[in-house]
């Protein structure tokens, strides 16, 4: 299991209805590609975050399939329209079966 995995997200606390906001997310993760060998010549098994999703009040915002060539600590920045107050829910899926979650509320005003 990957060690020291910690998700972080940045979402504005409030927005006007219909506003487009910028969301930044980062998860600390080694993203071991499965192509590297250790000092004894054995293949280091692949261990990556393979999927990232963001939902707003149950509606999907983005759903990303991630591949082994993505580097350490994957960072995503994207935009979302905020029609109403609610909560952004972020989910990262690890190769080892772990699921990491974070959520941020946003108000209208």
């Amino acid at each position: 299991m990957a060690k020291g995995v910690k998700p972080r997200v940045k979402v504005p606390k409030s927005a006007a209805a219909g506003d487009v906001i910028t969301i930044k997310t980062l998860i600390s993760h080694p993203m071991e590609s499965g192509q590297r060998k250790d000092s004894d010549g054995n293949l280091i098994p692949r261990s990556i975050i393979n999927r990232f999703t963001c939902d707003f009040n149950g509606t999907n915002v983005i759903d990303v399939t991630m591949e082994p060539a993505i580097s350490t600590n994957p960072y995503f920045e994207f935009e979302a329209t905020v029609p109403e107050a609610g909560e952004f829910k972020f989910t990262w899926y690890d190769d080892d079966g772990s699921v990491y979650e974070d959520s941020k509320p946003i108000s209208i005003g």
Partner: peptide, 12 residues
């Protein structure tokens, strides 16, 4: 600081 990956080390 959010965009600075070095902050991961600081947080650790």
């Amino acid at each position: 600081d959010f965009d600075n990956p070095g902050m991961l080390g600081v947080e650790a």
